[in-house]
């Protein structure tokens, strides 16, 4: 009993401490004072101001675009890679898995720096031009996400019943049909979680973005500004800009909604599993 009470207090206390900075920021999104801790009267004005702030809106657009495009590319490449490697010879498999492992454990700053040096090298000796653009940024984000897509899809392939594919072939399905109708549905959950993970990694990334970005997307001729780089530039000079407090509230609400949706989905799945079990027992 004591353990239960102590455990619960501990859990909620740490949870509170983890969310405290964000919660404080949210509380102060209803006042216009520059510094957190100062209160100059209750107002909703920061919310409309947020949507009128071109720089923030552009950065938000860039962030979402980069996240979706890089996640799509990484998911496609990573899934194909996982399927292909699964059916490869042992030696090829070992080589590919080893390289995947390297990019998982590699520090973000080493990935960023090595890519940048390569782009500089290519720019100086091959293209004879400055090559940093949306494409170099995209490559950076795909490198970041790719190994995680691979590792989400791989276990689903291992769990799959290998005779299903053979059965499909024996029943007259073309190999391509067998792949899309038999293998694909089996590994779909892995592909989906890989995609979501890629989006998360890309949205959250700062270092690779700061190193590999060039001009393009909504930023036009200027360097691509994402939410991370924009916030970093601002907080270097002073407190978080007031409009961004309103943005924090919105992001927080989205995250909470996400958590609720996930838990509902999980409960449903668990209940379904229970029902199935019950039937088997009956």
């Amino acid at each position: 009993m004591v353990k239960k009470i102590f455990g619960q207090i501990y859990i909620w206390l740490i949870l509170l401490l983890m969310y405290l900075p964000v919660l404080v920021l949210i509380a102060f999104s209803f006042t216009e004072a520059t510094n957190v801790g100062e209160w100059s009267g209750f107002t909703f004005d920061l919310y409309p101001a947020l949507f009128q702030d071109d720089a923030i809106m552009r950065a938000l657009g860039n962030t979402i675009l980069v996240a979706f495009i890089s996640a799509l590319v990484a998911t496609l490449l990573g899934t194909l890679g996982a399927v292909g490697t699964f059916y490869s010879k042992k030696r090829t498999k070992k080589l590919i898995e080893g390289t995947t492992q390297i990019s998982i454990v590699n520090a973000e700053i080493v990935i960023a720096f090595s890519l940048t040096v390569m782009f500089v090298f290519l720019g100086t000796y091959v293209f004879k031009d400055y090559i940093f653009s949306f494409w170099t940024l995209l490559i950076g984000h795909v490198v970041l996400a790719l190994p995680f897509v691979y590792t989400s899809v791989k276990p689903k392939l291992q769990q799959m019943d290998p005779s299903m594919y053979e059965a499909a072939l024996d029943l007259g399905a073309k190999p391509s049909t067998a792949l899309t109708k038999v293998v694909l549905p089996e590994i779909l959950p892995g592909i989906l979680s890989g995609f979501l993970l890629s989006i998360t990694l890309s949205l959250d990334d700062f270092i690779i973005t700061a190193f590999t970005r060039g001009s393009g997307l909504l930023s036009g001729a200027g360097k691509i500004e994402t939410l991370s780089t924009l916030v970093q530039a601002k907080i270097k000079k002073g407190p978080i800009p007031v409009e961004m407090r309103a943005l924090t509230t919105i992001i927080f609400l989205l995250v909470v909604t996400g958590v609720i949706v996930i838990s509902i989905y999980r409960n449903k799945k668990e209940n379904a599993a229970k029902v199935r079990k019950g039937r088997v027992n009956a």
Partner: peptide, 19 residues
């Protein structure tokens, strides 16, 4: 879930609170 809130924004929030 904090991982889904932008990392730089989180860091800034911590800094502002600590200040």
């Amino acid at each position: 879930a904090p991982m889904w809130i932008n990392f730089v924004l989180r860091t800034g929030a911590t800094r502002d609170l600590l200040t």
